[in-house]
């Protein structure tokens, strides 16, 4: 599936958060969005997923979702958003229960996503018993369970320590190699964006506008751990915005 944003704007009260955003998210591509704090990245993602509606402009989904897709636009959350009163298995089951699936079918799906996220032996644990990394794996497993055509990720690794996030990033890359999913991936970490993105969208400070879109042509599988040159280029784009945004916040 392909997503097309045309002149999307959003205001909260008097506050213009997003200003005329035009963006294409192509089938099978990961689009990373970076930008200073408060520029409207999370807002943009909520608009894309249909949890909020834009004031002006349009967001279109083109093409049909793959067969067996239960929820085309699926989120993975920064804070995991697991239900603490459900075990790992039950948390995944939650998103399947509203669909008419046989119990066998449902269990098959759960087993398969648990396996893909290396969680099989933790299936009956409470969320409180899991480490942050494992919780996010459950979040990923839950998203995979509905076989989405677009994965919407809002800083999925930022609540984790750097080793864990490195491991999970590799897992995501592996997953993409297998499934070629389409994704919008928000992050503050530039090297993360360069590792996983086909496109890196740099946003300006509020009101959020697209400042530059950097295409990375190297195949994801062939990328080095770091690409200092590109990182510096992105950082230079962001630096002034970040400093200005910081001042704005300080001065109210």
């Amino acid at each position: 599936m392909e997503l097309v944003l045309k002149k999307v704007s959003k205001t909260y009260g008097d506050l213009l958060v997003l200003n005329e955003i035009n963006l294409n998210i192509n089938e099978g591509q990961i689009v990373c969005i970076v930008g200073p704090s408060g520029c409207g990245k999370s807002t943009l993602l909520r608009l894309i997923g249909g949890l909020e509606s834009p004031d002006t402009g349009s967001i279109e989904a083109r093409g049909t979702p793959p067969p067996g897709c239960l929820n085309p636009l699926t989120y993975i959350f920064q804070d995991f958003s697991l239900l603490p009163w459900r075990t790992v298995e039950e948390n995944i089951s939650l998103v399947l229960e509203d669909h008419s699936l046989s119990a066998i079918n449902r269990n098959e799906i759960i087993e398969s996503v648990l396996q893909r996220t290396k969680l099989t032996e933790f299936s009956d644990r409470w969320p409180r018993e899991l480490s942050g990394g494992m919780k996010q794996r459950v979040g990923i497993a839950r998203a995979l369970a509905v076989n989405p055509s677009v994965l919407l990720m809002d800083e999925p690794l930022s609540a984790l320590d750097s080793q864990t996030s490195e491991i999970l990033l590799n897992d995501l890359i592996e997953l993409w190699k297998k499934q070629n999913f389409t994704s919008v991936y928000i992050t503050h970490n530039l090297s993360e964006a360069i590792r996983i993105g086909h496109k890196v969208v740099v946003m300006s400070r509020r009101p959020g506008e697209i400042r530059e879109i950097v295409n990375i042509d190297t195949d994801i599988a062939d990328r080095k751990i770091r690409n200092i040159e590109l990182e510096e280029h992105l950082w230079n784009l962001l630096k002034d915005e970040a400093i200005a945004a910081e001042r704005e916040l300080e001065n109210g």
């Binding site: 949890l51 959350f77 958003s81 239900l83 009163w85 939650l94 229960e97 509203d98 509905v146």
Partner: peptide, 27 residues
């Protein structure tokens, strides 16, 4: 609220959200 958002993002029905998220959370 973020849990309710999560439920909505997976297209859970109003009744499911109430029964499976709101009720246990307020228990």
């Amino acid at each position: 609220r973020s849990l309710i958002r999560m439920g909505q993002s997976f297209n859970l029905s109003w009744f499911s959200i109430t029964r499976k998220i709101v009720f246990p959370a307020s228990l």
